[in-house]
């Protein structure tokens, strides 16, 4: 099974029925996860997205390479400006947001800004998008990376674009990589599960810091029924484009 599909299932399982979730640009897996949740265990979740359609119709949905593609809003119940979704988040009424991370540290803080220094970057990354704004104000932050490696899981970020674990806050931070699932807590990143097809050694040898390990599970992959849903939403496998060949 492709790690994308396992990651989509993990992301979907973070969404509870009735919650309000938002995804931004360059977010094919979060979009599919939100639909998967809505079509299975969370029919009443509120779907907000960068294409600005509120609750688009999954029957009319097909995944395209730009998350803002207007066709992603097909069959929606209304237009919700992203600015309005940000207002809702400021009121504490956006439950969850998905963000990528070019670098992730053990507190699940993220860098999406630059490799090297800000003033003279070795690599200018696309930028944090809503990370700095939303990461401190949502209740669930779901971070993902398709590149589980020492370059991603770093001791020290080159730039702190978004905030992960925050002590004393009602905030859950989950990190979903192409190999494993983690959850941030005060003393670091706790390993929750390892995806089928990967070993604990694969996971640990590709991290620059040690996660907290205290028993872990095998990640639950999508069922045949769930795979059918994912495949129907993304018949051309756009979701795999994010992974290195």
């Amino acid at each position: 099974m492709h790690p994308a599909d396992v990651m989509i299932k993990v992301m979907a399982s973070q969404i509870k029925d009735g919650e309000v979730f938002l995804h931004g640009l360059a977010s094919p897996m979060p979009a599919l996860a939100m639909f998967l949740a809505k079509l299975t265990h969370a029919p009443n979740m509120v779907y907000l997205a960068v294409a600005e359609g509120i609750d688009p119709d999954p029957e009319k949905f097909k995944l395209y390479p730009s998350s803002a593609d207007p066709r992603h809003a097909a069959g929606c119940i209304g237009i919700g400006e992203l600015a309005e979704a940000f207002d809702l988040a400021a009121k504490g009424k956006v439950d969850g947001m998905f963000l990528g991370g070019a670098q992730i540290d053990k507190h699940a803080n993220i860098n999406l800004t630059c490799i090297g220094s800000y003033d003279k970057p070795k690599v200018k990354l696309p930028g944090g998008a809503a990370a700095a704004y939303l990461s401190p104000i949502v209740k669930k932050l779901i971070l993902w990376t398709t590149n589980h490696s020492k370059r991603t899981f770093v001791e020290k970020l080159d730039f702190k674009t978004g905030i992960g674990y925050e002590k004393g806050k009602d905030k859950k931070v989950v990190v979903v990589s192409n190999m494993a699932v983690f959850e941030a807590e005060e003393s670091g990143l706790r390993l929750i599960s390892v995806h089928p097809g990967f070993s604990i050694d694969d996971v640990l040898s590709e991290m620059s810091f040690e996660p907290i390990i205290d028993g872990y599970a095998t990640t639950q992959p999508p069922s045949d029924e769930e795979m059918k849903i994912i495949q129907k939403l993304d018949p051309e496998n756009v979701r795999y484009l994010e992974f290195k060949k």
Binding site: A89, A90, A132, Y133, S135, T161, G162, I163
Partner: peptide, 12 residues
């Protein structure tokens, strides 16, 4: 604007 505080963007 809420959020943002605690990130490196503030200093910049």
């Amino acid at each position: 604007v809420k959020g943002i505080i605690g990130t490196d963007l503030v200093e910049l």
